[in-house]
Every structure is written in structure tokens, then in C-alpha cells.
Simulated scan of single mutants.
Amino acid sequence: MTAPPQRQVQQSPVQPRRRARRQEAWLAYLFLLPALLLIGVFGLFPILYSLYMSVYNWRVRQGDFVGLANYHQLLGSWGGPATFVLGLVLILTAHWLWTGAFAELSARRWWRLPAALALLGAGVAIALSWGVITTHGDAAFLQSVIVTMYYAVLSVPLQIVLALVLAALLYGKIKGQGFFRAVYFLPYVIPVVATAAVFRIIFSPRESSLANTVLGWLHFAPQQWLFDPRPLSQVLFGFQWPGVWAGPSMALATIVLFGVWTYVGYNVVIFLAGLTGIPRDLYEAAEIDGAGSIAQFFSITVPLLSPVIFYVALVGLIGTLQAFNHLYVMRVPSAQGTVDTASINIFDTFYQANNYGLAAAESFVLFFLILVLTLFQFRFFGRKVFYG
């Protein structure tokens, strides 16, 4: 008898595709492995280890486990931080009520009363929290946080406005475009320490310094610049406001000039790249309709550049909150700590006081501040970006 023919088992076409996908996935992870190792070793591991250090009394050598005592030393009683977080929640609630929950009832303005009350409560909560924190917290670190906010608020808007105007001018048909672009970008390329040292000479308190010489030509009295701890409002207008309301010092304002000079060129290059993506037809149509250069700038350039402006503002804020190099080079004892930002204070706590645990806690408080401000930027300004 002849044996019956064996049936050939047909392989499902799904199995080879799954096998191919697994092979592609493993190959992709293999290519990503070097980058993941670098990020893990030089990025995630230091962050996690500094978090580990922040819960110990760490002075040169690892000491006793202290839990959240370092954070308690920085922020005082936990009522202040808790009230501050409550204020942030109320701000988000007010924004949600104003733009989300009652958007369809915008014609009935009385529906927005809860949002206004939530915003008022947020202001009261944040004011109370700051009063509690400053009363019981670390005075030096909290003062450095205030200086950091001064530096960010002064630097970022000036950088964006100047860079946007210069980019709009350079994008037009002018002679020597390449030369001016290179000149504006040059300060960003030069090492920061070298340029900061030069600025320290330019803004020397001597009457023969370049800055005071220029003031002499304009018939103004010479200034102390980096050596002047007085508030800028007092130097310019003679106002003597108390505490936080006095504003940044003259020394910090001088360093702001250096920051603007350094980073405006970088922002100009970013804006020029964004301007190349705007169709020229829009400007031609606006010109035919009779719109001038200023109207075109505010009606076409600014709205269509809003994604780039948002990116520059986001990166600029994070960078200024972390600024260290030029501030460390340009600060002097005569400024009396009015230019010591949070990064400078963290470095002094770590290097001079040898209090590694407290420095790690300070770095995480700064990280939380940067995270909150970044999320708020995404929440309040990210939705207003026009993507075309």
C-alpha cells in the first residue's frame, strides 16, 4: 500500500511580520543603546544620586539620615510650601474656569466670577506662603531665588524683543546681511568666561573705564556698576522701596546687559530660520492692501513666528534660571550678594560650606521652581501659539 501524501503546514503570514517587527525593534534599541547609556550615566544617575544626598547630613563624608530636614531648613515650616502649592492649584483652577469650563458661556460674564475669586485666592495664598517661608526659611537661599527671578524677568523679554527686531531688519534686503549676522552671532560663540572678564573691565567703577567714559560724554555722573548694591530704582529715580519691591540692584542690571549682549545673536539666528518659513506672498498681499512695515510686522511676522517665540522664551527662561558662569566671574564682594542667583548659592553651599546634602536639597528646590514655571508657560502660552 502506498502511504498517503503528507500535508504541508502552511505558515501564517502574520508570524513572519511579527518576527520582522521584533527584529526591527531590537535593532532600533541596539542603535539607541549608546545614547541611553550616556543619558543614564551622565544624566539620570547624578540626578538620582543628588536626591539621595539631599536626605543625608552630608559634609565631605556621608553622615546620618535626616530625611527632609534639609528641605525644612530651606523652606521653614511645611505650611508655607503647602500654601504655595495651594496657590498654584488655584491659579490653574482659575485658568480652567476662565478658558475651559465656561468657554461656551463667555457671553454671560457673571459666570466668570468663580474664576476671578479663584485667582484672588491664589494671590492671597502665594503671598501668605512667601511670608511664612521668608520668616522661617534660609534667608540666603531665598534671597538668591529672588535675585534669580529678577535676572530672568529682566533678561528674557529684552533678549526676545531685541532679537525679533534685529531678525526682521536683517531679513530685509539690506547690504552686508551675512556680515551683520556673523557679528550678532559672534558673542554667543566666544567663551563666556573671557567675555565676562572683559565686561568686568568695561564696567569698572573707575572714572577712566569705558562705560563711565561714555557716561561722561553724555554728561552723566560715573557709576559703580558691578560694585553697586543699591536697587536700580534708587539709582535711576531715587525711589527707596522696601524689600522685594525695590527691584534688582545696579550690579545685577549690569550683568543683565551682558546676558542680553551674549544671547541676542543666538535668538536672531533662530528667528531668521523661522522667518524663512513665512511665505512672501503674505507680505506682498498685505502691501497691496496698503499695510505698512509696522502693520506687516505685528499682523504677519509676530503671529506666524509665535511657535519660534514660544520656543525661545521657554529655552531662555530655563537658561537664565540656571545661569552660573558669567555671574560667577562678574560678581564682586562689594555687590553684597545682590547678584548671587540660586545657582551661585548652591555652588557656595557645596564648595565653600562643604554642605553637600543641603546643596543637593537647594538644587531640587530650584528644579521644582524651573519645572513649575515651564509647565505654566505651556499651560498659559502654549495654547496661544499659532501653528498655521
Rank of each mutant, 00 (worst) to 15 (best):
S106H: 11
S106A: 15
S106K: 14
A107Y: 10
A107G: 11
A107W: 09
R108S: 14
R108H: 10
R108A: 13
R108M: 08
R108F: 09
R109T: 15
R109C: 02
R109D: 07
R109G: 02
W110K: 06
W111G: 02
W111T: 14
W111Y: 13
W111F: 14
R112W: 00
R112H: 07
R112Y: 01
L113G: 02
L113D: 00
L113H: 06
L113V: 13
L113M: 07
L113K: 03
P114M: 08
P114F: 02
P114G: 08
P114I: 08
A115D: 03
A115C: 05
A116E: 07
A116C: 06
A116Q: 12
A116V: 14
A118E: 02
A118T: 09
A118I: 01
A118P: 02
A118F: 03
A118D: 00
L119N: 03
L119R: 05
L119A: 15
L120H: 03
L120N: 01
L120I: 13
L120S: 12
G121A: 05
G121R: 01
G121K: 04
G121P: 08
A122I: 03
A122K: 01
A122H: 09
A122D: 00
A122N: 00
A122W: 03
G123Q: 03
G123Y: 06
G123K: 01
V124L: 14
V124E: 01
V124N: 00
V124A: 10
A125G: 08
A125K: 05
A125T: 04
A125C: 13
I126V: 14
I126Q: 15
I126Y: 01
I126W: 06
I126F: 04
I126M: 14
A127K: 14
A127G: 12
L128R: 13
L128G: 08
L128D: 06
L128Q: 08
L128V: 15
S129H: 04
S129L: 06
S129A: 15
S129T: 01
W130K: 07
W130C: 09
W130I: 11
W130Y: 10
G131E: 14
G131M: 10
G131C: 03
G131W: 10
V132I: 15
V132T: 12
V132L: 15
I133S: 05
I133G: 01
I133K: 03
T134E: 11
T134M: 11
T134C: 10
T134V: 14
T134H: 11
T135F: 12
T135G: 07
T135N: 12
T135D: 06
H136R: 15
H136W: 14
H136V: 12
H136Y: 13
G137Q: 08
G137M: 04
G137E: 09
D138F: 04
D138A: 07
A139I: 09
A139S: 13
A139K: 15
A139R: 15
